[in-house]
Nucleic acid binder design. Structure first.
Lengths: 186, 186
DNA sequence: CCTTTCATGTAATGGGTTACATGATTCG
DNA sequence: CGAATCATGTAACCCATTACATGAAAGG
């Protein structure tokens, strides 16, 4: 009997979420973690491989060896029934508000210490960034919207549309905020 | 001569930003880190005390012993001229986009795996939270807006207004987004 | 031929949370 | 008289990043 499976770490649940959408190798998970998931969670391969091993020990994922180009055997992972259950439980579980870490705002909070021109540069830079991410969200959203899967509440695409819409809305608000600040800094 | 002062850590700069606004004890910094700074950066006292020691070693802050209720000498810290310069440099320095960690969105991204009623509960919960933070931002903002300091670009209150306005705008967008989702989940 | 992509791992280090430890004063 | 507040520190642990290590196949 395997040891009592406690709730996996957040990273573990992120990986379960990815694998529930489609089975992947660890390498592939690292790629998928960059975009579009990377906009709200990220991890490097050095963190992913040990986590996959832990998930497998707990019986939440399993792997089969497939053909691949690496020096070691290439493993394709998939969620097990227990893993799917763990994912569902995690999604439904109440979580207390996480501490936010927003470096951009932290710097802005000390902007009174620098020259107005420096401050404007800072805000302009932030605006460009928000706009870039906004565009990426919009592109991805327009690719999904209108498809029949996006309407099906039990289909991954439905959840993707929800999160992308949130990204679009908050980034749009951020761009408008930057414009508002630039106006105040004139 | 003290050893070459490299740029302090982000936490170090956060503390410099706090101390530049007003000198404090480590205990007080921990309190001030909860609200309102805590909305975009946070730290516990166990992290703050060693960081203060490091900053002092680099000559960026200094302390004087004052009367206090603790078992050890109570130290009031203040930024030095070098510390102020380091803060200004850090604010003006370009930073590459930080990886975002948004647990709420990560869970939402896997919402297709659960029942619609569970999904609605999740979004309702998120809405309450965003609204609570929004209200806190608005209160703090209304206390500052209209004061003469809020107009002075070299006064801390000016920067506070900028960040609070951003908080209000993004949280408002988030609440509207939740309503949009609840509509889609009907 | 050199770089990129596929592919999986480990080790060292840094950042952050939780828990341990201490002790005076104030308030209910 | 017990709990909360003031006040500072250390230790153990977890999470995450960077760097080290290996090697085949494909494309420019």
């Amino acid at each position: 009997m395997t040891h009592l499976a406690s709730t996996p770490s957040t990273l573990g649940c992120a990986l379960l979420g990815l694998l529930a959408r489609s089975p992947s190798t660890g390498y592939d998970l690292a790629r998928r973690m960059q975009r579009p998931v990377g906009y709200f969670w990220s991890a490097r391969h050095s963190q992913i491989y040990p986590e996959l091993a832990r998930l497998e020990q707990d019986g939440l994922v399993s792997h089969e060896v497939v053909d691949g180009a690496g020096p070691r055997p290439t493993k394709r992972y998939a969620v097990t029934a227990a893993g799917m259950e763990a994912l569902r439980t995690w999604v439904a579980t109440e979580t207390e508000p996480q501490p936010v870490r927003d470096l951009e705002t932290l710097r802005l909070w000390s902007v009174w210490t620098v020259e107005p021109e420096t401050a404007r540069g800072l805000v302009r830079q932030a605006r460009v960034r928000h706009e870039d991410v906004l565009r990426a969200y919009e592109e991805e959203l327009s690719a999904l919207e209108g498809t029949p899967e996006a309407r099906d509440r039990s289909h991954p695409a439905f959840a993707s549309v929800l999160t992308l819409e949130g990204g679009v809305r908050t980034r749009r608000a951020a761009v408008e905020w930057c414009d508002w600040m630039l106006d105040r800094l004139r």
